[in-house]
Nucleic acid binder design. Structure first.
Lengths: 203, 203
DNA sequence: TGGATTTACTGAACACTGTTCAGTACATTT
DNA sequence: AAATGTACTGAACAGTGTTCAGTAAATCCA
């Protein structure tokens, strides 16, 4: 019976049609300013239809977040090319910061925006695991080679991620203007901060 | 002519009445879930009245943010008691983290929430200056005594604030659950992270 | 093939949001 | 006492996420 298979396929096509439009509009206008009606308009369906495929706007966000995490993972894989673990860690850190600077709306929706998805991590927790594991594995590699001052990978990841996220998210909320008056020099200074920080945690 | 003075006084009273109610409701339910109508109900006025005192919801946020920054500054002054600059820096860092953990909604509205106030820092930039200067002065003290690896106070502030904000804000968005499974141990681990970080940036 | 059933979709409706503004009632001034 | 100024109201506007009775087409079964 090929009909049910075709219907399943059509359903998946519809779902990706919705998320593709949603992703595009989230990136252009931000999550908050993108309404279900706008998305429905973009794909030329009625608002109610979207609810036949996603239970609410938050589930749509969750879906888009998953894609965004993969996009970040791709950036990691593409830019972390060195053979030296510490150098790889630096490449990862700089990739993270560059990603946040280049895709502010995306970064916002991945890590900053408030939504059920971002709060109750019990059901929605395993969305960015692959990307996070990439960091953890790299850190473990560094620790096993005795290259960092940390004893546990979790401890190291906590600090390293916090530093990187702090830099990016404070910038996204314009909190760095007091410290960095010239907007143009922000990328350079943030990369320098990552560099320096990683120097300071070397064993 | 005492009438215009009385009117000015009454106007100020009304403004603080509004911001007091707003602050309370922002803390309890969050900024997004608090509506102008809710605030108006709480102070027993019509919604339109609020707009006679504040031009929009964002201006209300700005006002409450100012109070929140002062509250944080108070916490700094109360907890930073040591005579040793490095110890003072540690006390400040831990106070910052504790503040964020104890007042999640307040921290959210101060540093995380997205609003015109938080984005265009040209007109709204000087709201938290006193609190920020407290940090800068302390860092300058450390640098002048050659206690830190940094050469410039701005450079140091960038890293230190980013680390602290990263820890607090990732926690507020439940991003630490992958690294810290037990919720109860979060405060201790975050304080430990601050401790360790400050050790790693000692000259 | 023809009638019953399942499926996909619509768009009006509900309860909310921030914000505006004509209208009103009271305080102050002349 | 009449005219002016001020403070406040609450209905209205345009938007939001979400639901659901109604419809039309596709599928199934006899």
């Amino acid at each position: 019976m090929g009909i049910s298979e075709r219907k399943e396929r059509e359903r998946e096509e519809m779902k990706t049609m919705i998320t593709t439009a949603a992703m595009k509009m989230f990136l252009e206008d931000g999550y908050a300013k993108t309404s279900i009606r706008n998305i429905a308009d973009a794909i030329e369906y009625s608002p109610g239809t979207i609810y036949l495929y996603y239970k609410d706007k938050d589930e749509l966000l969750f879906e888009v977040q998953g894609q965004a995490y993969l996009k970040l993972l791709e950036a990691f894989k593409q830019n972390v090319t060195s053979t030296d673990p510490l150098e790889k860690l630096e490449q990862l850190g700089k990739t993270y910061v560059s990603f946040g600077l280049a895709n502010p709306e995306l970064y916002d929706l991945m890590f900053i925006i408030r939504a059920p998805t971002n709060v109750d991590e019990t059901t929605h927790g395993h969305n960015g695991d692959a990307t996070f594991n990439y960091l953890i594995n790299l850190i473990e590699e560094c620790i096993q080679a005795d290259l960092l001052i940390f004893k546990s990978a979790n401890q190291a990841a906590l600090q390293i991620w916090s530093m990187a996220h702090g830099l990016v998210s404070l910038n996204l909320r314009c909190r760095l203007k007091v410290m960095i008056p010239e907007e143009a020099s922000i990328p350079e200074i943030l990369h320098k901060a990552i560099e320096e920080y990683l120097l300071s945690i070397r064993a």
